[in-house]
Simulated scan of single mutants.
Amino acid sequence: MKLVAFDFDGTLSDSEMTVLLGAQCGVAEEMETITERAMNDEIGYAESLRERVGLLDGLSADGVETAFEDVELRPGTVDVIRALNDAGVVTAIVTGGFGRGVESALARNDLPVDTIVANQLVFADGDLTGEVEGPLIEGTKDDALRAVADNAGVALDETVAVGDGANDLPMLEVAGLAVGYEPKPAVEPHCDEVVASMAELQELLEDRSIL
């Protein structure tokens, strides 16, 4: 049995959830700057995430849902994941982004994924508190991949990790096959393969007999 674990923001989606949330309260540009620094490994991921979420303090639940409705999957994502599901491959999303945003995008595309490991925004009285909680703030994606693989009964060397940013590096480094999706310059040297579209990814998975 095989397992394919995807990052979400910048990989399955070209939307950046924190930027969409930031647009709801006028801080999208600040969000984007912090995100870019983190993805290029200029600041730690946990620090960057807390900085970004802190800018969202006071955003209403309605504003959050509006932002998450704008989270879109990349062209071809549905085809890749459906093909993996049809082939009996375990699918996972391992993201430092927010579970509700991932679930929203998947539901709109009627797209099942076996496991989602994600962080969550914290609300109080219907508004964001500017805090975030979850397994991928201080925790790293290698531990998450190991746990998902163990739960699925898949050996680590039978896993594929697909990601683009610095916080994906731990997952890419321990996976049996590391695939960079338009990876950042600091990430590309750590990838076994690099793709620039979901069609390319599907072709690669077919060539590697995963599909």
Rank of each mutant, 00 (worst) to 15 (best):
D192G: 12
V19W: 00
L49T: 11
V187K: 02
N119S: 05
E131C: 07
S13P: 03
E69F: 05
R37H: 14
A92M: 06
A178P: 04
M198R: 00
D110Q: 08
L136K: 05
V94F: 06
S48P: 06
A83T: 11
R100P: 01
S104D: 07
N119W: 05
A199I: 01
I34L: 13
D143F: 15
V179A: 09
T77Q: 05
T129V: 08
Q120G: 06
G26M: 03
D207T: 10
F123M: 14
A107K: 07
D157R: 10
E158I: 00
F8L: 00
D157L: 11
E131I: 04
D62G: 10
C191D: 05
R52K: 05
V94I: 15
N40Q: 14
S48L: 09
E188F: 04
D150E: 15
A155C: 08
D7R: 01
E32Y: 13
L56T: 01
V122L: 04
E65C: 09
A149S: 07
G26E: 07
D9Y: 01
A105L: 04
T35E: 10
K2I: 05
V94C: 15
I34Q: 03
G97K: 01
G165W: 01
R208A: 12
A124F: 08
V195E: 07
E72H: 05
E42H: 11
E72A: 13
V160T: 11
C25Y: 00
S209R: 14
T18C: 04
M1W: 03
A38P: 06
E16R: 02
L169R: 10
T159D: 09
V162T: 07
D207E: 14
T115Y: 11
F98W: 09
D207L: 10
M39V: 09
D86Y: 11
R100H: 09
L49P: 00
